[in-house]
Design a protein around this nucleic acid. Structure first.
Length: 496
RNA sequence: GGUUCCGUGGCCGAGUGGCUAGGCAGAGCUCUGCAAAAGCUUCUACAGCAGUUCGAAUCUGCUCGGAACCUCCA
């Protein structure tokens, strides 16, 4: 079997994934800025990297997954208005900055739980690592690649580019960068306009501020990731991930800072997920076209035809390869909802089945199932192709349903194939893709009531009292419970 | 303007030289008291033009259309 291949943004090609220390993987993913509510676009990287995290563990690795919380705030426009995004919003909402940050952090964590994302190993905050950031800036100054001026510190991009491949990650050529036409205050402080801030002096009205060797201020917007990834994963680690929109300047700057400070490129594999678009345009604050997660879950948004559950969204996202754009649309979401139900019901049915010897062996079918199962691993190993993986799972569904309906005997498969089938479905659906039941299975009393209704309905049907049996089924349907008559005379139900 | 990427059937979306993608929707049949679900069968593709090749959705060139980044951004 082909080993795990990963598309590395840094080299622009697929490469075999080999951890620095075999069996151990360090992964850093850029987390949310908690100055506002998460939208659909934010869901993608965290679901994508959750699956990557799960799959790396599935392969037997011990993974340290670090995902930061950016709670220090960055500039809307660096240098123009000395107003921190977070402190600005705080004034509007009349909240303490940390109160605001706490509120959106809580909301973010809530959303992550809705999506069934595993918690990262470490979730460091920018405000909790001011000391580490200052230390790093000091080192960069000592190396001669940064300069302090008027209480701010800037990274000397031009000098760096003379010796190191600045722009390699983002495919940028320094001279080709479009010079900003805006009038920026404090621009004259910089030696070159490409230089970026490591530390910014805080004007008096700025609420978030810390003491530093250069005066009171706050960290620039790339240094936190460099400082925290170095602290928790070392000077060089395996994977650095995030959205494609972070390639430049964020990750390019991280590489520059870390390279000077630690004398090596920080991460070996750079993985970037593509954007979610809406009407062909990236969903983002610049376009003012976001659909917040809370709106998605409730359906309360003009663009939404209905509410979509967290698992529907997870499924929707994973049905596309992470490096492709994914276009939002009600039809697509509804297709995902139905597809998920079909897949999940087959999974539930499969787990209840047992292999029973007997019936004619079907070698061809057995081969096909085995081929599809190994295709699951192959697809995931091919740069985490969850779209292909899910297509494979769907191809197995008719066989599962045929066994369930008695069209095929479980014994027509080899016992080992059947057991593998059950194992793979659980591994892939629950452990790797991270899907879970949303039917409200926790209401055990409800299940008792439904079992009673099933009994009554069975009695009614046996007396050909279809008025009663239809009444039970129809009224349950009205409150969102589907009762189905199965082939074997049993009844099943599913909660919407 | 620079850099990069994309254009697949009604919708979403895999696939990078020859072999069925898959999901949703549509059509037919089977099963069923009915319904739903399910099973089987089935229709609609590779933006356009030219080239390379025995053979291209897949490689090359051009044209048209769209996007991302270059500014906070997942």
């Amino acid at each position: 079997m082909q080993s795990l291949q990963v598309y590395n943004s840094y080299t622009r090609q697929k490469e075999s994934f080999v951890p620095i220390v075999p069996g151990y993987v360090g992964m850093y993913v850029c987390g949310p800025t908690v100055s506002g509510e998460s939208h659909l676009g934010h869901a993608r990287p965290f679901i994508t990297f959750d699956v990557i995290y799960r799959y790396l563990m599935h392969l037997g690795n011990k993974v340290r997954y670090v995902r930061n919380i950016t709670d220090a705030g960055h500039f809307e426009e660096e240098g123009r208005e000395a107003e921190d995004k977070i402190s600005k919003k705080a004034i509007i909402e009349r909240l303490e900055p940390m109160e605001l940050v706490q509120k959106y952090t809580n909301l973010f964590h809530w959303a992550m739980r809705q999506f069934n994302n595993l918690e990262p190993s470490i979730e460091p905050t920018a405000t909790g690592h001011i000391v580490e950031q200052i230390e790093m800036i000091k080192k960069i100054i000592a190396e001669g690649y940064a300069y302090a001026i008027n209480g701010s510190v800037y990274f000397d991009v031009k000098k760096y580019a003379e010796k190191y491949p600045y722009g390699k990650l983002s495919g940028r050529i320094l001279d080709d960068l479009l010079e900003s036409t805006r009038d920026l205050e404090n621009q004259e402080e910089k030696h070159n306009w490409q230089d970026f801030a490591l530390w910014k002096a805080a004007p008096p009205e700025h609420i978030m501020r810390w003491e530093s060797p250069w005066g009171e201020g706050f960290p620039g917007w790339h240094i936190e990731c460099s400082a925290m990834s170095t602290k928790y994963l070392g000077t060089q680690f395996d994977i650095h991930g995030g959205g494609m929109d972070l390639l430049f300047p964020h990750h390019e700057s991280e590489i520059a800072q870390s390279t000077i400070c630690n004398h090596r490129v920080p991460a070996r594999y750079w993985i970037h997920n593509n954007m979610i678009t809406i009407n062909g345009k990236k969903m983002g604050k610049s376009y003012n076209n976001q659909i917040r997660l809370t709106e998605l879950f409730t359906g309360d948004h003009p663009l939404l035809a209905q509410a979509y559950s967290p698992m529907t969204i997870r499924f929707f996202i994973l049905q596309t390869h992470y490096r492709s754009t994914l276009d939002f649309g009600n039809e697509a979401l509804q297709a995902a909802e139905k597809g998920l139900r079909r897949l999940w019901e087959a999974h539930l049915a499969l787990q209840k089945m047992n292999w029973v010897a007997g019936g004619p062996q079907n070698a061809e079918l057995d081969q096909k199932i085995r081929r599809l199962l190994s295709g699951l691993d192959e697809s995931m190993n091919d740069d985490f192709n969850t779209a292909k993986t899910m297509a494979n799972l769907f191809e197995i569904v008719p066989t599962i349903n045929s066994i369930k309906d008695g069209h095929i005997q479980s014994g027509s498969l080899a016992e080992d194939t059947f057991m593998q089938l059950k194992k793979y479905f659980t591994d892939y659906l629950e452990n790797i893709l991270g899907l879970r039941d949303e039917s409200g299975a926790e209401h055990s009393k409800l299940h008792g009531v439904l079992d009673l209704l099933i009994e009554i309905r069975k009695d009614a049907r046996s007396r050909k009292d279809y008025v009663t049996s239809d009444k039970i089924r129809n009224q349950l349907q009205q409150i969102g419970i589907l009762m189905k008559d199965e082939k074997d005379g049993k009844m099943s139900y599913s909660l919407e």
